[in-house]
């Protein structure tokens, strides 16, 4: 199995805290369950032995021994629950404590069916990207989540639990990643047709790598490829119908409705985790979005096969 989207392999402080609560729960509940199973087995065994006696049913409900046992059992249950409540309480406290250590602000906006991420640069400007979250290891990021349409939920299991993305509400989630690596997040709240394809990649990297990445993201688009069709692709994308919804900084494309494509070639996947990034994947997505993601708001654009190929070459070159 893949640990990329698993809560069982925590890679951040928050998920680790939650994993600890899970461990505590499993121990306490597991022991209690075994006790219940043991009781049931004993009752069956003892009841089966007693079956031979064929006198009339017992109509006296009281039984002093059982009453004492019930009292003990209740105390055990109360103790177990108290331990769990206290454990939860401290976990909640430690989740809340991260708020004082925030060093980075990220805005995550859920939309049907992709994620808009905006980073606040040290200079105070906002840099926009989509469907790929980069986080510096060891620093606490403040993720402000918001929705433009319906309720979504921001969920990267190896990093932290969910935070619902609710129109009209400003929610904040803290992430303090610890292990460098690639992870995956997704939408946790049913949000319509393509709820299944509303994922995002998460890259946890060293602070130095992160700063380099953010600086690169802040630059305008610059195609990096020797492919001759890139120039044609740039015309197709930035002067055609794509530009109405997508922004590619440094070109005429300035639409706001869809994901920012300025550095799309550097991302790991296409269409909110639907396909891995590749030239063929981009071409398929441009030509037949509804075949890959039925119900998507990305329309089919009628391009000649060569134009579609050129467009994907251009997009892939936007590193």
């Amino acid at each position: 199995m893949s640990p990329a989207q698993s809560a069982l392999f925590p890679a951040a402080e928050q998920a680790a805290t939650q994993f600890d609560v899970l461990t505590l729960m499993l121990w306490i509940c597991g022991v209690m369950y075994l006790v219940v199973l043991l009781f049931v087995a004993l009752a069956i065994w003892r009841g089966a032995r007693a079956r031979a006696a064929a006198d009339s049913p017992v109509t006296e409900a009281a039984d002093p021994t059982l009453s004492r046992a019930l009292a003990i059992w209740s105390c055990v249950v109360v103790l177990g629950l108290t331990a769990l409540v206290v454990g939860s309480f401290f976990a909640d406290r430690s989740l809340a404590a991260a708020r004082d250590r925030e060093t980075l602000v990220i805005r995550a906006t859920g939309q049907q069916w992709w994620w808009r991420f905006a980073y606040r640069t040290p200079g105070g400007a906002w840099v926009e990207t989509a469907n790929e979250l980069h986080l510096p290891a060891g620093r606490t990021a403040r993720v402000e989540v918001g929705s433009t349409d319906v309720i979504h939920s921001f969920w990267a299991p190896p990093l932290a639990g969910k935070m619902d993305v609710i129109p009209g509400h400003a929610n904040v989630l803290d992430l303090t990643p610890q292990r460098i690596g690639w992870y995956r997040g997704t939408c946790g709240e049913f949000c319509g047709l393509q709820h299944a394809h509303m994922a995002f990649d998460v890259r946890v990297e060293s602070p130095a790598d992160f700063d380099r990445w953010l600086a690169a993201q802040a630059t305008p688009a610059a195609p990096q490829s020797g492919d001759p069709s890139v120039a044609r692709g740039q015309v197709v994308v930035t002067q055609g119908q794509c530009a109405e919804c997508h922004t590619i900084r440094g070109t005429a494309a300035a639409g706001k409705a869809g994901p920012d494509l300025t550095h799309i070639g550097s991302r790991r996947s296409i269409a909110a985790g639907t396909l891995p990034m590749s030239r063929g994947g981009l071409e398929g997505w441009i030509e037949q979005p509804a075949a890959l993601k039925p119900g998507t708001n990305m329309p089919a654009v009628s391009l000649s096969p060569s134009d579609a190929d050129a467009a994907s070459a251009y997009l892939l070159s936007l590193k």
Partner: peptide, 16 residues
């Protein structure tokens, strides 16, 4: 209900 949706160039983030 769609107020948060991008309205051309005037869109500026989630509804607060």
């Amino acid at each position: 209900d769609q107020k948060g949706q991008p309205t051309g160039t005037t869109w500026s983030g989630a509804v607060r």
